[in-house]
Nucleic acid binder design. Structure first.
Lengths: 243, 243
DNA sequence: CGTTTCCTTGACTGCCATCAAAAGTGGTGG
DNA sequence: CCACCACTTTTGATGGCAGTCAAGGAAACG
């Protein structure tokens, strides 16, 4: 196990924050944190490394604090009471994890590293945390939550009124856009999820996902072999997704 | 149009707050507000009455503030870019409306009164609002948002891996529970949504909703004629819903 | 009381789940 | 390096659930 927690480091020093490369910094928690006045000096960012397959937190675990992906990627997984497991999210560099723990002080999803990854933990001490944190941070958290709500709602619409092919196209388009926003190529990337995980995320069976990708290839919208995807026609992809 | 705004009234006086009859007051915004110290005296609750069919706010309108349903009921409706409209929520007495406006300072859904209704508006003045509001209120808002996220996620699971009948059963069960929590009968209530609206909410066609209800009646789980529903066997209903 | 909206039921179609099997991929150890 | 294994992906065949089209009847509203 390579996992280890480096000792606490002061917030606005040392290594570059992940949001340095992002545009919408009002949504970036570490940026908000870095701008906080001295009162926040008490706050400590903790770094953590995880190897592929390791869990950042498990479902039902007490809420430790909000976490930011510095490198690598994660999937969020929810286990229903009857043993079924569903993928609820895909998170890459710059994404915030753990917001679901705010409601009841325990995590409602597990977060699993899809590759060797690196995160920042913003520890939540106790109830007084919120008072000390300051309005900037609180506002940032509120916007993040509200934003998450919108994402979830969009996904819901995708599931409730789009065909299998449209869902897969929308998923790939979303990945493409998010990779591009983080400085990677928008037209060529490596999927970290299996067909089964994508299906779970989209409410489809793995065979259906495979068939949808095959169909998109026949339409010359993209090329895919295994997890490697090359988008040939981004406009067509968006059209297939229905956006 | 019977709609009218009464002049502002001081917060913790006069008429009973809707949460007086609720158990989990840590989630109740008006309660949190009533407990605020003097600094919040500047805040003014505004009352508003709406007749059936009237909108509390429309999609795209600037965010006015968080609203609490005092009496009556509302549906949340989202209009997609291509003209399709989808029901995204059903809100009754004590529910909080308008949280989706926090992310971008404009509403992402419309809220339509399903009957003559009564709401409280907690106006959001400007950016300084958050700072003045105080940590208690902020924390309450954060928890509400996080809670909303969980609701949305549960609905998503319902849509992605449950049959039509299970979805309808889950919807009716949810309504039953929520009515009960507000002091109404859990086993007999009046649906305010049409079959089409229920279908839109659950990702189904109206005929499918009708057939699912017919099936539940054949199983002696409930009796329904039109919008009037009587639950005969709550346990079976929950079982059909898969909970 | 008439008109409009809503609900129910039937028949048919199509999409996607399911079952099944073969081919491909990656990692491990001999 | 190669054989082996587990896992993943692809493709085919079949069936069922829910969408679609259609029409008659009930309820709500002015």
């Amino acid at each position: 196990m390579h996992a280890l927690s480096t000792p606490s480091i002061p917030p606005s020093t040392a290594w570059p924050l992940p949001c340095d490369s992002l545009e919408r910094d009002d949504l970036c928690l570490p940026c908000s944190l870095a701008r906080l006045p001295a009162t926040a000096g008490a706050q400590r960012l903790q770094r953590r490394r995880l190897v592929r397959g390791e869990s950042l937190f498990l479902q039902g675990e007490p809420f430790q604090g909000i976490q930011v992906v510095r490198a690598g990627s994660f999937k969020s997984v929810f286990h229903t009471h009857d043993g079924v497991e569903q993928v609820t999210g895909l998170h890459v560099e710059g994404d915030v994890l753990g917001l679901d723990g705010l409601a009841r002080d325990r995590h409602e999803n597990a977060a699993i590293a899809l590759e060797d990854s690196d995160v920042l933990l913003l520890p939540q001490g106790d109830a007084a945390w919120w008072n000390d944190a300051g309005p900037d941070l609180q506002r940032a958290v509120t916007r993040l939550l509200s934003r998450e709500l919108l994402r979830e709602r969009r996904r819901l619409q995708l599931l409730s009124l789009r065909s299998a092919e449209a869902r897969v196209a929308a998923f790939l388009h979303d990945v493409s856009v998010r990779m591009h926003a983080r400085g990677y190529s928008a037209c060529e990337f490596h999927l970290r999820l299996t067909r089964e995980e994508i299906g779970s995320y989209l409410g489809l069976q793995l065979e259906t996902v495979s068939r949808a990708i095959a169909s998109l290839q026949r339409q010359r919208v993209l090329r895919a072999q295994g997890k490697h995807v090359r988008v040939l026609d981004a406009a067509s992809l968006a059209a297939c997704a229905g956006t």
